[in-house]
Protein backbone atom coordinates (compact mmCIF):
# COMPACT_ATOMS: atom_id res chain seq x y z
CA UNK A 1 0.00 0.00 0.00
CA UNK A 2 1.20 3.54 -0.76
CA UNK A 3 0.46 6.48 1.52
CA UNK A 4 -1.70 9.05 -0.29
CA UNK A 5 0.10 11.90 1.46
CA UNK A 6 3.81 11.12 1.46
CA UNK A 7 3.95 8.20 -1.01
CA UNK A 8 5.69 5.82 1.41
CA UNK A 9 4.99 2.20 0.50
CA UNK A 10 4.25 -0.04 3.46
CA UNK A 11 2.58 -3.29 4.40
CA UNK A 12 -0.72 -2.61 6.24
CA UNK A 13 -0.55 -6.09 7.76
CA UNK A 14 2.58 -5.13 9.65
CA UNK A 15 0.63 -2.43 11.56
CA UNK A 16 3.86 -0.63 12.20
CA UNK A 17 2.36 2.75 12.96
CA UNK A 18 -0.69 1.78 14.97
CA UNK A 19 0.36 -1.21 17.01
CA UNK A 20 0.08 0.88 20.15
CA UNK A 21 -3.53 1.89 19.40
CA UNK A 22 -6.13 0.11 21.64
CA UNK A 23 -8.46 -0.33 18.61
CA UNK A 24 -5.84 -1.92 16.37
CA UNK A 25 -7.19 -5.49 16.79
CA UNK A 26 -10.37 -5.18 14.69
CA UNK A 27 -9.45 -1.94 12.96
CA UNK A 28 -9.47 -1.94 9.15
CA UNK A 29 -7.61 1.36 8.86
CA UNK A 30 -3.90 1.54 8.18
CA UNK A 31 -1.60 4.31 9.34
CA UNK A 32 1.47 5.35 7.40
CA UNK A 33 4.64 4.59 9.39
CA UNK A 34 6.22 7.85 8.12
CA UNK A 35 3.54 10.54 8.44
CA UNK A 36 0.77 8.74 10.34
CA UNK A 37 -1.90 9.46 7.69
CA UNK A 38 -4.84 7.07 8.03
CA UNK A 39 -6.01 5.10 4.98
CA UNK A 40 -8.74 2.46 4.68
CA UNK A 41 -7.30 -0.95 3.95
CA UNK A 42 -9.88 -2.12 1.41
CA UNK A 43 -8.56 -5.67 1.62
CA UNK A 44 -9.53 -5.84 5.28
CA UNK A 45 -12.83 -3.95 5.27
CA UNK A 46 -15.57 -5.81 3.36
CA UNK A 47 -17.92 -2.84 3.14
CA UNK A 48 -15.19 -0.43 2.05
CA UNK A 49 -13.91 -3.05 -0.43
CA UNK A 50 -17.38 -3.43 -1.95
CA UNK A 51 -17.78 0.34 -2.25
CA UNK A 52 -14.33 0.67 -3.78
CA UNK A 53 -15.15 -1.99 -6.40
CA UNK A 54 -18.49 -0.36 -7.23
CA UNK A 55 -17.01 3.12 -7.52
CA UNK A 56 -13.36 2.67 -8.46
CA UNK A 57 -11.15 5.64 -7.74
CA UNK A 58 -9.59 7.40 -10.71
CA UNK A 59 -6.53 8.26 -8.70
CA UNK A 60 -6.01 5.02 -6.80
CA UNK A 61 -2.58 3.55 -7.45
CA UNK A 62 -1.41 6.84 -8.95
CA UNK A 63 2.22 7.29 -7.98
CA UNK A 64 3.47 10.48 -6.41
CA UNK A 65 5.28 12.78 -8.86
CA UNK A 66 4.84 13.76 -12.51
CA UNK A 67 3.35 11.01 -14.61
CA UNK A 68 2.76 10.58 -18.33
CA UNK A 69 -1.02 11.03 -18.13
CA UNK A 70 -0.49 14.55 -16.82
CA UNK A 71 2.26 15.63 -19.22
CA UNK A 72 1.59 18.71 -21.34
CA UNK A 73 0.08 17.96 -24.75
CA UNK A 74 2.36 18.99 -27.59
CA UNK A 75 5.47 18.83 -25.42
CA UNK A 76 8.31 16.35 -25.14
CA UNK A 77 9.12 14.58 -21.89
CA UNK A 78 11.75 12.11 -20.79
CA UNK A 79 10.63 8.80 -19.35
CA UNK A 80 11.97 8.71 -15.80
CA UNK A 81 10.79 5.27 -14.72
CA UNK A 82 7.85 3.03 -13.96
CA UNK A 83 5.77 2.76 -10.81
CA UNK A 84 6.16 -0.41 -8.76
CA UNK A 85 2.43 -0.91 -9.26
CA UNK A 86 3.00 -1.66 -12.97
CA UNK A 87 3.21 -5.35 -13.84
CA UNK A 88 6.41 -6.73 -15.35
CA UNK A 89 4.44 -7.68 -18.49
CA UNK A 90 3.24 -4.10 -19.05
CA UNK A 91 6.66 -2.70 -18.30
CA UNK A 92 8.27 -4.94 -20.91
CA UNK A 93 5.53 -4.27 -23.42
CA UNK A 94 6.05 -0.50 -23.10
CA UNK A 95 9.81 -0.93 -23.34
CA UNK A 96 9.45 -3.04 -26.46
CA UNK A 97 7.42 -0.17 -27.94
CA UNK A 98 10.28 2.19 -27.04
CA UNK A 99 8.71 3.79 -23.94
CA UNK A 100 11.59 3.21 -21.56
CA UNK A 101 13.60 5.16 -19.01
CA UNK A 102 15.92 7.72 -20.55
CA UNK A 103 13.99 8.01 -23.84
CA UNK A 104 12.14 11.13 -24.94
CA UNK A 105 8.54 10.89 -26.15
CA UNK A 106 6.19 13.44 -27.75
CA UNK A 107 2.87 13.80 -25.95
CA UNK A 108 0.09 14.08 -28.55
CA UNK A 109 -3.16 13.71 -26.63
CA UNK A 110 -4.72 12.42 -23.42
CA UNK A 111 -8.33 11.88 -24.44
CA UNK A 112 -9.92 9.41 -25.14
CA UNK A 113 -6.55 7.74 -24.38
CA UNK A 114 -2.99 8.98 -24.09
CA UNK A 115 -1.10 8.94 -27.41
CA UNK A 116 2.66 9.44 -27.49
CA UNK A 117 5.07 9.61 -30.39
CA UNK A 118 8.08 7.32 -29.99
CA UNK A 119 10.61 7.56 -32.81
CA UNK A 120 8.44 7.31 -35.92
CA UNK A 121 5.57 5.45 -34.27
CA UNK A 122 2.53 6.52 -32.30
CA UNK A 123 1.61 4.45 -29.27
CA UNK A 124 -1.83 4.71 -27.65
CA UNK A 125 -2.16 3.72 -24.00
CA UNK A 126 -4.88 4.04 -21.41
CA UNK A 127 -4.66 6.48 -18.50
CA UNK A 128 -4.54 3.45 -16.15
CA UNK A 129 -1.14 2.65 -17.59
CA UNK A 130 0.04 6.19 -18.40
CA UNK A 131 -0.37 7.19 -14.75
CA UNK A 132 2.17 4.53 -13.80
CA UNK A 133 4.87 6.01 -16.06
CA UNK A 134 7.04 8.68 -14.38
CA UNK A 135 8.21 11.53 -16.56
CA UNK A 136 10.65 14.38 -16.20
CA UNK A 137 11.47 17.46 -18.25
CA UNK A 138 13.32 16.72 -21.49
CA UNK A 139 17.06 16.86 -20.74
Amino acid sequence: MACAICGTRFDPEAEVACGSCPMSGACTLACCPECGYTTVDINSSRSAGLLARLFPSRTEGRPVGATLDGATIGGEVAIAGFSDAMTTGHRELLRAYGIEPGRTVRVEQHSPVTVVGVDETEIALEADLAKLVFVAAKP
Partner: peptide, 12 residues
Protein backbone atom coordinates in the same frame (compact mmCIF):
# COMPACT_ATOMS: atom_id res chain seq x y z
CA UNK B 1 -15.92 -14.60 -16.43
CA UNK B 2 -12.93 -14.77 -14.08
CA UNK B 3 -9.82 -12.68 -14.76
CA UNK B 4 -8.88 -9.02 -15.00
CA UNK B 5 -9.52 -6.64 -17.86
CA UNK B 6 -6.49 -6.08 -20.13
CA UNK B 7 -5.21 -2.52 -20.24
CA UNK B 8 -5.28 -0.88 -23.67
CA UNK B 9 -1.92 -0.40 -25.39
CA UNK B 10 -1.61 -0.39 -29.15
CA UNK B 11 0.51 0.93 -31.93
CA UNK B 12 -1.09 3.36 -34.37
Amino acid sequence: VPGDRSVFVTEL
